[in-house]
Nucleic acid binder design. Structure first.
Ligand SMILES: [Zn+2]
Ligand SMILES: [Zn+2]
Ligand SMILES: [Zn+2]
Ligand SMILES: [Zn+2]
Lengths: 175, 175
DNA sequence: ATTCAGTACGTTATAATATATCATATGTTA
DNA sequence: TAACATATGATATATTATAACGTACTGAAT
């Protein structure tokens, strides 16, 4: 059964779906790095080896990753890496829209669409920690409409929805 | 000019507006404590002096307050208060819907409508740190609709919108 | 009233997350 | 070359949050 136009329009608002366990994740990383290179070139910003490496580490797990977890991994190849090393890289990556910070987890996740500027909208599974990134215009409109009514100028949206993903509810994870 | 029915319905979704500087804030606190008492009585939970005091401190500033800021104030009357003292009280207050945590600020704010259970939707002014609490059904519906389409079961919404409030943009705070 | 279980709080220590500051290196511009 | 901006190294510290264990109170069952 083919997808309707409406379905296609809806899919376009799901930037990164929940990840199946079988997919070729190496490919995800490669594509993310390529997108980042292109984005930084456009911005005229320098995508240094350190920044690239941190971005690879963020992507290397599919879920949100903490800064100190990244630091540990980074130390595999850079023995002298310290907290500022990773925080500075994370700051750069966020400023250039290459990653998002998940406030409710103090963790970071690769952006599935760095070409397009957007705030973060996430569905986060409590059981398997997987994350789906959205850029849902209906959510955005609802927020903007209310803010406008109050004379509030929106600069950044943080929408983080905690719950249970379809896979986990199918498996009956009721933890 | 009178408010239309539509306006009234919209206002009902603004749980706590941005606060004017001139209002009687003592009254806000009194009402919040009364609502908390009634809520805890219904829950059969014990609204102890410590918990009451922490709730008063949360309300005593209109904006979001950090845990350690609360701790300092608490020490005015309880010299031996320690981090667990305040965190335990905050946990209790959150579990009973009396306060919300603002994830993007690591801070806590009194709930303007503890009688009704709801996730947090906030507009947060970057300049004056004031917060408006919403319970906007259009935002809620947009989120739920998208989550449903992905088979995701929503347990908790975190919606935190950073920007500039009407007062600050009128004053031309462009910081 | 005594025992018991549950709950609230005290107390000390430590974990987890993030930033400040100054030094060094490197690349770019004039 | 000199001057400057950017990126990273290195050390220290700030901020936010929890673990673990002990004590005191509460209210119910015996
Ligand atoms: Zn994104
Ligand atoms: Zn899941
Ligand atoms: Zn509330
Ligand atoms: Zn403001």
């Amino acid at each position: 059964m083919e997808k309707s136009i409406q379905d296609a329009a809806n899919d376009a608002q799901v930037i990164a779906p929940f990840q199946s366990h079988g997919h070729d994740h190496g490919q995800c990383v490669v594509e993310a790095i390529a997108a980042a290179e292109s984005r930084c070139e456009k911005d005229g910003s320098s995508f240094t080896p350190l920044r690239r490496q941190v971005l690879e580490l963020v992507w290397s797990s599919h879920g949100p990753v903490g800064a100190y977890e990244l630091l540990e991994k980074l130390r595999g190849s850079r023995r002298n890496a310290a907290p500022p090393t990773v925080y500075r890289a994370l700051d750069f990556l966020m400023e250039h829209g290459l990653i998002h910070r998940i406030e409710s987890l103090n963790a970071y996740v690769g952006c599935g669409d760095p070409a397009r500027l957007h705030g973060g909208q996430f569905l986060i599974c409590r059981d398997c920690q997987s994350v789906a990134e959205l850029d849902d215009s209906a959510i955005d409109r609802a927020v903007t409409r209310r803010a406008d009514a109050l004379g509030f100028d929106v600069q950044q949206q943080t929408v983080e929805i905690i719950g249970q993903c379809a896979d986990c509810s199918a498996r009956g994870n009721d933890d």
